[in-house]
Simulated assay, not measured.
Amino acid sequence: MDAAQDAPQEAALRHNVADGVATVVIAHPAKRNAMTAAMWRALPEVLDGLAADPAVRVLVLTGVGPTFCAGADISSLTGDEDPQALAVAAEEALAAFPKPTLAAIRGFCVGGGSQLAAACDLRFAEEGASFGVTPAKLGIVYPASSTRRLAALVGPAVAKYLLFSAELIDAEHALRAGFLNELLPAGQLDERVADFARVLTSRSQLTQAAAKEFTNGRTDRDAYWAEQAAGSGDTAEGVAAFLQRRTPSFGWTTAPTAAPTTGRATGRPAG
């Protein structure tokens, strides 16, 4: 998962799946991984494919080289394209991904980059990273959904500080504000993310999927999740594994019933 490896110069989203972890890499090194219009359009489709892949249990989003994502590549837009609409569609697809998502951040995480990072469930960063939400520099009204997501993550006061000023904050400030879950010394980000992703792949997808819905504010599916838990066998397996001092083999897995961008998924025992 080393995103610092040499990469082709053309703008692209690259992805691979290994050991239950899907890694999506933002690759546009000529412009600090700024997202082109084509990349914004491609992200929901990439996520749909990965959500439907039963081998995927966790998704990691990162950038190639020393930068996560420096925003949107405005020069790539055509005259009739709405850059906000493209970014919001990609952001919402990422937020609705039915399995745990983790942003692995180094360098600049600015504008659209912060938008994507905020849409992930978790954010790990390397020392030296910088964060900013910059529409006030361009006279842009930040989307309502993105503003609410940012405020829910860092609180109204910090969200206003970022949005009003468009100033960048360093990684230590982002950690204190609650934007980051972990801050790693230089050179340790990839190893820590890989280790934590392995932890997530070993846990119950049933627990993770329900927790993701509940923490994201959905409150109308308590009965659904109780039914899933009763029929999954995951609880019995978890208790048995604990008593037998072995690694559990959980069987429940997500199975999208519609495009994952709707945020809806059903579950079933694997196999």
Results as ranks from 00 to 15, higher is better:
56 V>L: 07
16 N>M: 15
65 G>K: 00
180 L>Q: 02
253 T>L: 11
47 L>G: 08
266 T>Y: 05
115 Q>D: 11
231 G>Q: 07
183 L>D: 02
257 T>P: 08
50 L>C: 09
105 I>W: 01
164 F>N: 14
122 L>A: 12
260 P>N: 13
246 R>Q: 13
233 G>V: 09
92 E>A: 15
265 A>F: 10
257 T>E: 15
167 E>P: 04
256 P>A: 05
76 S>L: 04
174 A>I: 00
114 S>Q: 13
222 D>N: 09
265 A>W: 10
159 A>T: 01
218 R>Q: 12
32 R>F: 05
140 I>G: 10
58 V>C: 11
69 C>D: 07
190 D>Y: 06
34 A>D: 01
54 P>T: 07
152 A>W: 02
81 E>R: 07
250 F>K: 05
228 Q>K: 11
50 L>M: 12
71 G>R: 00
212 K>T: 04
247 T>F: 10
114 S>F: 06
223 A>T: 10
45 E>T: 13
167 E>Q: 13
54 P>H: 02
38 A>T: 15
216 N>K: 15
200 L>A: 06
206 L>R: 05
42 A>T: 01
192 R>K: 15
117 A>G: 03
46 V>P: 03
87 A>M: 13
18 A>N: 13
22 A>S: 06
64 V>E: 08
184 L>F: 08
6 D>M: 11
128 G>K: 02
37 A>T: 01
174 A>K: 00
268 R>L: 09
269 P>S: 04
239 V>E: 13
50 L>K: 07
175 L>T: 00
173 H>Y: 11
164 F>W: 14
100 P>K: 08
99 K>T: 11
149 R>P: 00
262 T>C: 02
71 G>P: 07
25 V>Y: 03
80 D>Q: 11
93 A>C: 09
61 L>Q: 06
271 G>P: 06
119 A>K: 03
134 T>G: 02
81 E>A: 08
111 G>M: 03
110 V>F: 03
63 G>N: 00
120 C>S: 02
116 L>W: 00
180 L>P: 04
46 V>D: 06
151 A>C: 12
105 I>H: 00
56 V>W: 04
155 G>P: 05
135 P>E: 07
7 A>Y: 14
143 P>C: 06
175 L>E: 01
82 D>P: 15
210 A>K: 15
202 S>N: 09
242 F>T: 12
229 A>Q: 10
61 L>W: 02
